[in-house]
């Protein structure tokens, strides 16, 4: 097939697929909500330990799913680290940008803590808070901090696995005392969820910041940074 014919073929095929998809989704929307998981989630919300339905779905009803998503993040950052050392990064910032960074990074960390706490009752939670921490890391790296505010090699590894580790530790401990894996006992759900979310926030923030740095963390004794 020539280039032009291929182009026309792909365009027509995608247009047809778009038509079919639109037909399916508009039918689904016009039919109304029907049997969905939302009423089930709303009904179980008072027993979930948190007031925000999205957090309840993430950390309680579908906790397995969230655990595996954190594992996907971990796998991605391991792949990035395996691809070799990072670029050197940018030159240290001049006075104006450095001054801005001095203000911005503490505010971002504060906002991350707030989002983590408020996630129990209102929109917020580990993923938003982690993204805030990662944004602080990106700002630091753009301003010339080579490691984006992350600790040295070994601690960086600890941070990156913290989310999956806390999740698994809570799940296995619950199994050991006779509940199901990640089946929170009533009354303790809130604090277990907050523990997991705190570790997940640190892990997500460290993972995304490490992903932005884009290479393996430096090893070796302190003071011999390859920056």
């Amino acid at each position: 097939m020539t280039g032009a014919a291929l182009r026309a073929f792909v365009t027509i095929a995608i247009a047809l697929a778009a038509g079919v998809l639109w037909w399916v989704f508009s039918l689904a929307l016009l039919e109304g909500p029907g049997e969905r998981l939302a009423p089930l989630a709303a009904e179980a919300l008072p027993r979930s330990g948190v007031g925000n339905p999205v957090t309840a779905v993430l950390l309680n009803f579908r906790a397995y799913d969230t655990l595996l998503e954190l594992a996907v993040l971990l796998a991605a950052v391991l792949g990035i680290w395996a691809s070799g050392p990072p670029d050197r990064g940018f030159a240290p910032a001049e006075i104006v940008l450095a001054g801005l960074v001095d203000w911005l990074v503490p505010l971002l960390i504060l906002a991350a803590g707030y989002l983590l706490w408020v996630g129990g009752q209102a929109p917020g939670g580990a993923f938003q808070a982690g993204a805030m921490l990662a944004a602080a890391g990106v700002v630091l790296r753009l301003a010339g901090t080579p490691r984006a505010g992350l600790p040295r090699g070994d601690w960086q590894r600890v941070l990156v696995v913290a989310g999956v580790a806390a999740f698994l530790a809570v799940g296995l401990a619950l199994m050991a005392i006779g509940h199901g894996f990640l089946t929170y006992p009533p009354g303790h759900a809130k604090w277990l969820i907050l523990t997991i979310e705190t570790a997940a926030t640190l892990a997500i923030g460290a993972t995304l910041a490490a992903a932005y740095v884009g290479g393996s963390p430096p090893d070796g004794p302190p003071g011999e940074d390859r920056a």
Binding site: L37, A41, A42, P53, A56, V57, R62
Partner: peptide, 8 residues
């Protein structure tokens, strides 16, 4: 209130 499952 929106369906929380797709949001998550």
């Amino acid at each position: 209130a929106p369906d929380p499952v797709p949001h998550a």
